[in-house]
Design a protein around this nucleic acid. Structure first.
Lengths: 199, 199
DNA sequence: CCTACCGATCGGTAGG
DNA sequence: CCTACCGATCGGTAGG
């Protein structure tokens, strides 16, 4: 017999995730209690345990869905046949757009990933590595001689990702610069530096 | 009557701070208990409350000492009379060197600053703003027309600080690139981009 | 600076 | 006999 699930099972699960990400980002994993989360979700604590085995499983799902969405959004960028510089801009912009409205989950990833047991942490890191490789490949397309210099291409990739991953700490939605304008600035800054004679 | 302090009062206080930073970075502020900390410091829990009024006061001191040291180390860099590009390199290198052995406090700053009450948070942010201004001034020295364009210089400064503040997530002490070599790479990358015709 | 505790709240689970 | 929950409370531990 097929098991029957509540009509809004997925909707409720997503609501738990959304609220958990907010709480984890706000107070940290340990500081966010299951009671807090239950109230935030307008369900009983027991209901949370119906959807998730324990608190850690919620954190894992928050981080896993976040990293999966980033990968999907990046791979949805249509780079095929574009010039290398254009590809870099599109990739940067796709990542920044994916970060939009995901500040909470981004914070949770940065702050709380290490709390997960090794096994789970490794699964998240697989997604992170895909993103790093994605950008490394585009950077190498822009400067082919880096292909055989991982000791240079790695720090360069991490520098680029540093700019993008730090963005949430200072960017204001209603500031003087749009997300897309910042994508362009980062792309120009990075490529300008990459192609200067010093590097 | 003057109160008498234990001979090693300051030494013990620093030991508490050092261990607290480690615990906060490892488990987050809420996840690090005063009991954990007492054991880590080989003192009783009551002793901790002899040195600090409460748990938040320890966090504040960790973050405050960290940010103060960063400011001091930056201001100790001898920039006087150096060329603008050289100044940028020296400032970047001073910050990265100051981060050395301070990964825990850096993590605590990123993850747990928001937990402090507004008043305390503001005190820490004063130090952060000094550092941002310090780099902005040097960037403007390297590209004077940015002086009247804060809507451009601000994102540029934050991009540079993003690279530096993200460094701890991937840098390995025994990796192929030294801290100083990375300072040089970041400096060349940033100045190369800044002086390219696109920006 | 210690042991011995407190009010409260933690993550998780019982019966129905 | 199932699922999807609820009110109440478990044994331990938190900050103080």
């Amino acid at each position: 017999m097929a098991r029957i699930r509540s009509q809004d099972y997925d909707k409720k699960r997503q609501s738990i995730l959304k609220n958990a990400a907010l709480l984890f980002a706000d107070r940290g994993f340990a500081g966010a209690s299951m009671s807090n989360l239950a109230i935030q979700c307008s369900v009983s604590k027991a209901t949370l345990y119906h959807y998730y085995e324990n608190k850690e499983a919620i954190l894992f799902d928050v981080l896993n869905q976040h990293i999966n969405l980033l990968v999907v959004d990046l791979q949805a960028a249509e780079l095929e046949g574009k010039a290398p510089a254009k590809k870099l801009f599109l990739a940067i912009d796709a990542l920044l757009k994916s970060y939009e409205n995901a500040d909470d989950t981004h914070r949770a990833l940065i702050n709380d990933l290490q709390i997960l047991p090794k096994q789970d942490r490794r699964k998240i890191k697989v997604g992170e590595r895909i993103i790093v490789q994605y950008f490394t490949d585009i950077i190498i397309e822009n400067k082919p001689e880096l292909a055989d210099m991982p000791e240079k291409s790695m720090p360069l990739t991490m520098s680029l990702l540093g700019m993008l991953n730090w963005h949430y700490t200072w960017f204001k939605q209603d500031g003087p610069m749009t997300r897309e304008a910042y994508s362009k600035m980062v792309c120009d800054l990075f490529l300008g530096g990459l192609n200067s004679d010093k590097l």
